[in-house]
Design a protein around this nucleic acid. Structure first.
Length: 924
RNA sequence: GGGCAUAUAACUCAGUGGUAGAGUGCUGCCUUCACACGGCAGAAGUCACAGGUUCAAAUCCUGUUAUGCCCACCA
């Protein structure tokens, strides 16, 4: 035949997306029913510099499953795509590229540089959009957005100005996380705490305590402070207060000795009586000579270290807070370049912070003031982007006041207006909002939304949507309209514009049709690492500016781990490229594997075995269709629509059964996807298609379908098999769009896409058919088991007898006699009233049906005894358990009547079966 | 230090208050006219540990242990 035996994804996949896109199947306008429900999702915008990684592959697959499923259900689906300008990442990429050409960004200047970035975006951007087409993302490209688009930028200005006018955005001088590598402030979220192996240095500061308080004692008279300190700490009275002949010293411990150059106090806990006497004294800062005060602050733990803390208000967040509380001097000794400033003694100036650390330690040691050095591992803030150690610095930045915005965002999740899945994640979300800190929103970058603020020569700030409005505001304040206005140089954190994404993409602040139609969205599918960065902030902004939650459900997809359950990382070298996976196994198979692995957990290890079984599944679908195409030619020519009901004039058991199975698969898929139980949808489809449809229904249809005779019966079977196949392809399409479209169009649907076909809707199941079919498959399996146990070659036909007193069972066996003969490879099948004890006959029992297979001379009695024994043991185990339960009065009295009845029925059935088996064993 | 998860077959994971399931792997048979990326038949689990609730617990509660993730200002 012309259809290959193996499915070749590469032959098929590239073909369909261009057609779908050109036909605009993915715009909500394709759905013409105005009453159809709306289903909106906005894509988490990938970085414009980005390329598709495994996380995207999973995230996009799940969104696409939902979008295609809802679309086939008749919804007006809008899945809105777009990209993020990714301030820091993009600026870094272009800066690096320019550097490779020997051009320094600063020489180029801001305007020229920005031109280069736009140029870069035009030429090198768009990678991810191409990759999204490979995955099959059914997004509406006509509505694609970029966070730096004109419309979205307008939204950013509007939000900034409104929040500023409300006092929710402010500018101020605070301690921020400074990235010396990027030369910009970064937010707390962009700072990653990582354990770093370092030291903790114990340093003595002389105390100036009146008469003998002279630390400049000459070398010869010097006391060994280190020894004294060691002695003191071996004694019971651990303390950092060292009284020696040479004078009094206090001992502080620090992980960053270089910051001592900026110390302006030493702190201890107000309740720490050991140091009460120091309250009004002064210490002399070594190497610097500055006199510094003692302060008392609850922040200091009595029991940690010596209980004395050096305070560097300009270089440590805690010390900054203490500095504010106690009105200390803020001396900046480390610069934005992470070098020592002119505020420090001359010999340290211009030294890098780590060189300065060495120098300071060396000098303290020389002065005999370094008392102890311990190894110490502590958490140090690192810049997420550059990887450099963050320097806490005091700097003037823009901040957003978060508390008033966080409150409604918290409430919306608590009262269920927005549901976060999985449940545990909503607790993380709530916890963060409850302890929210103000957000540093300004960045010292060029690429991004410029902060809409201007400064007058006397330092006044004017915030406005543009310069003209700024001048209007000047006039309103009674100032000269021609005042020189200097624009703010900074840009906004990338996440500022992303926070507006669910409504800015739909046209806000204009009241567009799209905004009215598609906001709020139904579901956001995203990854856990951006819950704070993005999800929480969208919630805040959506509630603030739209007055409604931006999405009713947030589904957090799993983190994709490598096959060994390890987090993927470049340093570990275990990063899996999704495009390689698609290439190796096929896109549909990879999508299916990802969906099947999307359980309730927060992680997902991508196993090769899962990918292989998914690939095999695609092949199974291919071959099942191949079978139909090869055998049902004349039906496929027929243009009559394939409606099951009208053709079902004389349904067989198999027909009723497969229809019932289809119904239950349909209803399970629908409810699984409604509740975001993706794996369940995948498992249901896999089992239905493979185990029910292929293993049984197709097998049962073979005598009719492969028959060359044209009869009404044969034609009816062919029609039914095509019907079930088509329904199956529709069910599978959201998960496996390419292969299903390909096969759909090979069936008589030329030019009709499967993308817009009706998703099957479940009707009632036929439980009787399912029960009867179970009986049939049970008999066939038992007979096959006997064949297998005694190694009967497939070519050898055997005889069999069945006996039962149950009328319904008899009817099934009668109707299915031919099929039992065929599937169990029998010579003949006899239905008898009772089976007589026969020598050399193998026996079995199945729910009231006795089976006998005469195997004169072929039976190995030991084997048979063993086979029967295993069966009896298994049944007896269950029977005894039930007996034990039923003899328990409490069970009979308290358990649900239904459960008791069920147990009794099962028990009786088992009793009969075991009795029969025992007779068989005795007769052996 | 706080919080959130997770512990089930060799591996990766589902699962439900009524004595356990899948995929892969494993064993045996089969190159039977859709598919060896296949078919058929099998073996395999004190459902982490210890208590408690219940007629009944792998499933609910408590504690323990182990692992993972997130948050946090211990110098």
């Amino acid at each position: 035949m012309e259809i290959p035996k193996q499915y070749e994804p590469k032959e098929v996949e590239g073909r369909w997306y261009p057609e779908w896109e050109a036909s605009q199947y993915f715009t909500p306008e394709k759905q013409t029913n105005p009453a159809a429900p709306v289903f909106t999702m906005v894509i988490p915008p990938p970085n414009v510099t980005g390329y598709l990684h495994m996380g995207h592959a999973l995230n996009h697959t799940l969104q696409d499953v939902l979008a295609r499923w809802r679309r086939m259900n008749g919804d007006r689906v809008l899945w809105l795509p777009g990209t993020d300008h990714a301030g820091i990442a993009t600026q870094m990429v272009v800066t690096r590229q320019l550097a490779a050409e020997g051009v320094d960004r600063r020489d180029l200047g801001r305007e020229k540089f920005l031109e280069k970035v736009w140029e870069w975006k035009a030429h090198s951007g768009g990678t991810i959009q191409k990759q999204m087409r490979i995955v099959g993302d059914s997004v509406d490209w006509s509505r694609e957005r970029f966070t730096m688009d004109e419309g979205l930028s307008k939204a950013v200005l509007e939000v900034f100005v409104r929040l500023y006018d409300e006092g929710l955005i402010y500018r101020g001088e605070y301690m921020v996380n400074w990235s010396p590598g990027l030369q910009t402030a970064i937010s707390d979220l962009e700072t990653e705490m990582k354990p770093v192996k370092g030291n903790i240095w114990h340093i003595a500061y002389p105390v100036k305590d009146g008469a003998e308080g002279d630390s400049t004692t000459s070398r010869s008279e010097r006391v060994d402070l280190a020894e004294a300190y060691a002695a003191l700490n071996e004694s019971e009275a651990k303390s950092g207060l060292l009284k020696t002949a040479q004078g009094t010293f206090i001992v502080v411990a620090t992980t960053r000795p270089e910051t001592m150059l900026g110390d302006t106090a030493v702190a201890f806990n107000p309740e720490d009586e050991r140091y009460a006497e120091l309250k009004d004294k002064k210490a002399v800062l070594p190497l610097v000579g500055r006199e510094i005060q003692f302060i008392q602050d609850n922040l200091v733990e009595k029991d940690f270290g010596t209980g004395l803390v050096k305070v560097t208000p300009a270089h440590d967040p805690n010390d900054f807070a203490m500095g504010k509380r106690h009105g200390l001097e803020f001396i900046q000794v480390i610069s934005k370049e992470a070098k020592i400033t002119d505020a420090a003694p001359e010999k340290y100036r211009e030294l890098d912070r780590y060189a300065a650390r060495k120098a300071v330690v060396a000098d303290l040691e020389a002065a005999g003031l370094l008392l102890k050095v311990e190894d110490y591992t502590h958490n140090v803030g690192h810049c997420q982007r550059s990887g450099q150690v963050v320097e806490p610095l005091i700097s003037t930045q823009w901040f957003m006041k978060m508390q008033p915005l966080a409150e409604p965002a918290l409430q919306a999740v608590l009262d269920g207006r927005t549901k976060i899945i999985p449940e545990g994640v909503s607790k993380i979300y709530c916890g963060w909002l409850e302890n929210i800190q103000d957000w540093c929103i300004s960045r010292q970058l060029w690429w991004g939304h410029r902060i809409p603020a201007w400064y007058t020569p006397d330092g006044e700030i004017i915030v406005a949507r543009n310069e003209a409005e700024a001048r209007e505001r000047l006039v309103q304040q009674g100032k000269d309209v021609n005042t020189v206005l200097t624009p703010d140089e900074d840009v906004l954190d990338t996440w500022f514009s992303s926070a507006l994404w669910p409504f800015s993409t739909l046209g806000w602040p204009e009241q567009t049709e799209d905004l009215k139609n598609f906001y709020p969205t139904q579901v956001l599918v995203t990854a856990q690492d951006i819950i704070f960065f993005w999800v929480a902030r969208m919630m805040m902004m959506g509630l603030k500016f739209m007055g409604e939650v931006p999405f009713s459900t947030v589904y957090i997809n799993a983190l994709v781990l490598d096959p060994h359950g390890q987090k993927m990382s470049k340093t570990k070298g275990n990063v899996i490229d999704p495009l390689e996976v698609f290439d190796k196994y096929g896109t549909d198979a990879a999508r299916f594997a990802l969906t099947a692995a999307s359980t309730a957990g927060l992680t997902l290890a991508l196993q090769d075995s899962k990918l292989e079984s998914s690939r095999n599944f695609a092949n199974k679908i291919w071959n099942a269709t191949r079978f139909v195409l090869m055998n049902c030619g004349e039906i496929l020519e027929d243009q009559e629509p394939l409606e099951w009901e009208t053709k079902l004039s004389n349904p067989t058991l198999a027909d009723r059964w497969i229809l019932s199975r289809l119904q239950s698969a349909t209803s399970e898929v629908n409810s699984a996807l409604t509740e975001y139980r993706f794996h369940e949808a995948a498992a249901t489809l896999y089992q239905f298609f493979w185990n029910d449809f292929c293993d049984w229904y197709i097998e049962l249809s073979k005598p009719f379908v492969t028959s060359t005779e044209i009869s009404d019966e044969n034609t009816a079977v062919k029609r039914r098999i095509i019907y079930i196949l088509e329904r199956s392809l529709c069910l599978l399409h959201p998960l496996m769009p390419f292969i299903t479209e390909e096969l759909w169009q090979r069936l008589p649907h030329k030019g009709e896409t499967i993308c817009l076909k009706d998703f099957p809707q479940a009707v009632a199941r036929d439980e009787q058919a399912e029960r009867e079919m179970e009986l049939f498959t049970g008999i066939v399996s038992k007979l096959r088991n006997i064949r297998s146990t005694f190694n009967i070659a497939p070519s050898v036909k055997i005889k069999a007898q069945l006996a039962t007193s149950d009328e319904a069972s008899k009817a099934v066996m009668t109707a299915m006699t031919d099929q039992i003969i065929r599937l169990a490879r029998l010579e003949s099948l006899e239905l008898v009233e009772a089976i007589a004890a026969q020598k050399g006959s193998v026996r079995d029992v199945l729910s009231g049906i006795e089976i006998a297979v005469p195997l004169e001379g072929l039976v190995d009695f030991d084997k048979e005894r063993e086979r029967l024994k295993t069966t009896v043991t298994k049944l007896s185990g269950e029977y005894e358990g039930l007996q034990k339960r039923l003899s328990n009065q409490d069970f009979v009295a308290r358990a649900a009547a239904e459960v008791v009845a069920q147990s009794q029925a099962r028990s009786a059935e088992l009793e009969e079966q075991i009795a029969k088996m025992k007779v068989v064993m005795e007769n052996l």
